[in-house]
């Protein structure tokens, strides 16, 4: 059973006068421990696909099964629970709480998971240490560099041991050197067994992935295995 099973998914937005078909019949499977890059020009539907995969949005029609569970059947609270426990989001703009410490930011998904304060602190410290920020736990976002902020966000995504990490243009707001560092982090996470789905429009970022999906006009234009994924050392 694939981790993600998507069959004929259509997503239509009603923009008043016209219907916008963001996704018009997408089918794909993603297995555990894959490293997939979703690419495409703007308006191709890649963000919509990511929102559907991330359970932030539900398809208009078609089937989406996450770990065998039909997402279309879930209510709001159940979707929140899947996002909380199964999916780790990394955003282009980091989306950290500006007035909270790195530690508290990482604790956030654990709070919504109902974990006791002692355990979630332990877990958050672990996650921050794993991304190399063991010495920056009590810093607030504005006391951290862009790369460090994105590391906090990755630690936050990892905190609940999710089934997939879903990253939307994770290097879009970083300079290329820092971007490479973050890509290194993703490669490491992949090596450790995590499933990673990356949305990007940059070829050299997508080149780190093991599989590249290209979207065009709401349809999958190509789905290719990458023979020799870029290692971070090569791209410097």
């Amino acid at each position: 059973m694939p981790l993600i099973h998507i069959k004929d998914v259509v997503k239509t937005y009603d923009m008043g006068a016209e219907l916008v078909h963001a996704l018009s019949g997408v089918s794909l499977d993603i297995e555990e421990n894959e490293y997939v890059a979703i690419m495409g020009p703007s308006g191709s539907g890649k963000s919509t696909l990511m929102n559907v995969i991330g359970c932030l949005d539900t398809p208009t029609s078609g089937l989406y099964q996450f770990e065998g569970q039909n997402v279309g059947d879930l209510d709001d609270n159940e979707l929140a629970e899947i996002r909380n426990r199964k999916i780790g989001f990394v955003f282009q703009t980091f989306n950290l709480l500006p007035r909270s410490t790195a530690l508290h930011n990482v604790e956030l998904p654990l709070i919504y998971a109902g974990m006791s304060s002692h355990r979630r602190r332990e877990r958050a410290e672990e996650a921050l240490t794993a991304v190399g920020l063991g010495d920056r736990m009590t810093h607030k976002p504005n006391e951290l560099s862009g790369g460090q902020r994105q590391r906090v966000a990755v630690a936050r995504a990892l905190a609940n041991n999710p089934s997939i990490i879903l990253a939307d243009e994770p290097t879009g707001n970083l300079d290329s050197k820092t971007g490479v560092e973050i890509m290194q982090l993703f490669s490491d996470l992949h090596t450790q067994g995590n499933t990673i789905i990356l949305v990007t429009h940059e070829e050299d970022i997508a080149a780190h992935a093991h599989r590249v999906l290209r979207l065009f006009d709401g349809k999958i234009a190509s789905d290719e295995k990458v023979e020799s994924p870029l290692k971070y050392a090569q791209s410097v």
């Binding site: 709001d76 929140a80 629970e81 909380n84 709480l97 919504y112």
Partner: peptide, 16 residues
């Protein structure tokens, strides 16, 4: 608004 979106993405329920 963005913070609310983030919290929801991280698993906050409506009630939270």
């Amino acid at each position: 608004t963005k913070e609310i979106g983030t919290r929801k993405a991280l698993g906050a329920r409506r009630s939270s």
